[in-house]
Design a protein around this nucleic acid. Structure first.
Lengths: 341, 341
DNA sequence: CGCTGGCACTCGTCGCTAAGGAGTGCCAGT
DNA sequence: ACTGGCACTCCTTAGCGACGAGTGCCAGCG
């Protein structure tokens, strides 16, 4: 199939113009704005081919052309280079992330920054529990039969959970439990805890067995297995910018609804890797409600490990090179922040 | 000024019809749907008076009438009784809040529930730090010169903060500090801590003075003074329902933006009390971006104390009696959950 | 063979006009 | 004090025509 260089160039021009003007782009406007060196008629022929191949389409007969999802895909894969960040953006990132006081703060700043820079909806997953290691476990008596179990991970995340004990527990007993738990689990990755924790119950003193067993099952259930991941969201208002076009069709609601479902958002980060950005364009999204949007996501973490995902959700007509660059940059800085922490 | 009973009845009818149909209501439709016992002409005269007094207005000459902010205010103050919740709603509330595992979970469930029941945007403030008491303070060594300070309050909230120590600290020293801190502060309301904490530094052992001082200043700064309140939000997608009317005017964006600003949201709860709901209608809102909406808010907490605010944001044309009832009910249940906790 | 200019055609947009209808204000009558 | 009637306003909708952007196709040119 014939997609010579000029046709690709035409496609690139169409994508770029459409992204910046948000209006179907015609052959005449194209040759005026891009030095293609050929006449509108030639461009029209190329466009006809591009349309046959499914890369662009006409909203109505005799309107300009608009890229299809497939067209964006080709553009992203072959026609665009990652746009280097402007110094201003670089500075903004540094200024924004430096000065964060705790994990919550870092994540919040990151997500707001990302929303601001891309002018789209930003999503940042809190550092995943399963991929991080235990730094400390704390037991705090709340009443005689109730304990607050606090876990601190090496990513700075703190999880807590109230535990109902099978019977009253003495302070010394709790001190013992605390010591044992910490001795066994500190430094262990959460994914690796289950077997260790099992042996803990077996080795426990007879009289502490019941308590230890309860404690351990809570630990497994809620802190490890139920890796209830948290999500930070920002820039929802940018959706309103997506254009009165999509807005009037009422397509906004399902998107807002999808964004409120943490479960759905977490799916976005299923396959993220560190370093490179994953781009899902329109129909490529598995989440049906997001089929009218594109998602740019990546993983982040200290070094090259991945402890969480982050990304943006925006219209398919987005500035892919710019967005990809920004997402990756923010992810990198976020990773550095975590490494320092 | 003459607002006899029938005129008030007419106003109530207008508000109710407009809320349910979202369309300007005319004299004829009014007498048909409400057994007013008078003719349309009479109603028209009453309407003219109501309009003179500023309770209703005509969008255009020869369209029906629409309540003004002032009209809604009169309606809320004098014409409406709180609508009892349906058993189904009552059940929904119980089902939803029971089974929450920790504070985060309770708050999240509450806000989603509220959004779902009112079909509006729901906002719940996390239990405020300043009004709750210290249950436990924990110091966790992170490195030789770094400490994680964890504070647990009686509302179940956990706050943490990394502290840079002036110099390396021995484990025994930390144990001492922990004991002293807890002995002095457990059970004390956060608002009452500053003087106590001050004396802590003075009474500290000479060699621990520097460390204690750092610790105490962090405690004051970040955990008490900076009462950085958190907010949970849900139901943003319901904004899209506010009607293509407001939506096409592009009035949606500023509202979404305001909702993303925690500082703004916190203002909504400045004056809330427990038990009764506060209703701010349209222009009555201090937040400019929310002048096109109404806010129904209330305080919640164990018993009659107030540890936080919650409420909903919706179009001025909302079902006030229903919304008020729901907000209060959810607040009451939430308070009970906290009391149990 | 590929590119170009010309030309007829399509079709969405914009502005105008006319008809329809909902709702009002006013007035005279009971 | 309420009611029925009536003229009037003005929003909404549909229909029509002019306009223009953009296309597809074709014949001609290098």
């Amino acid at each position: 199939m014939g997609l010579d260089d000029r046709k690709l160039e035409v496609l690139r021009a169409i994508v770029e113009d459409y992204v910046s003007t948000q209006e179907p782009v015609g052959s005449k406007a194209l040759v005026e704005r891009h030095a293609l060196g050929v006449s509108p008629a030639t461009v029209r022929n190329d466009m006809a081919v591009l349309e046959d191949e499914g890369y662009i389409r006409q909203p109505h007969t005799s309107a300009g052309r608009v890229p299809t999802d497939r067209g964006y895909r080709l553009f992203v894969d072959r026609l665009s280079r990652v746009k280097p960040l402007s110094p201003a953006e670089r500075r903004a990132i540094e200024r924004f992330l430096v000065g964060a006081v705790d994990l919550d703060d870092v994540v919040h700043r990151a997500v707001r920054l990302l929303a601001q820079l891309t002018r789209q909806v930003a999503v940042v997953q809190y550092p995943s529990l399963t991929r991080s290691a235990v730094r400390h476990l704390e037991l705090v008596p709340v009443s005689t039969t109730r304990l607050l179990l606090v876990m601190i991970t090496d990513t700075g995340r703190v999880e807590q959970r109230v535990v109902e004990l099978p019977g009253p527990a003495e302070p010394e007993e709790i001190t013992d439990l605390r010591r044992t738990l910490n001795a066994t689990l500190v430094g262990v990755k959460l994914v690796d805890t289950p077997p260790l924790v099992q042996s803990l119950v077996e080795r426990a003193e007879p009289q502490a067995k019941a308590t230890m067993s309860t404690l351990v099952s809570v630990l497994l259930e809620t802190l490890v297995e139920r890796h209830e991941e948290r999500i930070a969201l920002a820039g929802t208002s940018n959706l309103a910018r997506m254009g009165p076009l999509d807005l009037s069709t009422g397509a906004l609601r399902p998107i807002l609804e999808a964004l409120e479902e943490e479960v759905i958002l977490l799916k976005l980060f299923d396959e993220v890797k560190s370093g490179s950005a994953l781009v899902r364009i329109g129909d490529e999204n598995e989440v049906a409600d997001l089929r009218s949007t594109s998602v740019v996501s990546t993983g982040y973490g200290p070094g090259t490990t991945v402890v969480g995902g982050m990304g943006v959700v925006g219209p398919t007509r987005m500035d892919y090179p710019g967005t990809i660059a920004t997402v990756r940059a923010v992810a990198r800085y976020l990773g550095e922040m975590l490494a320092q922490h």
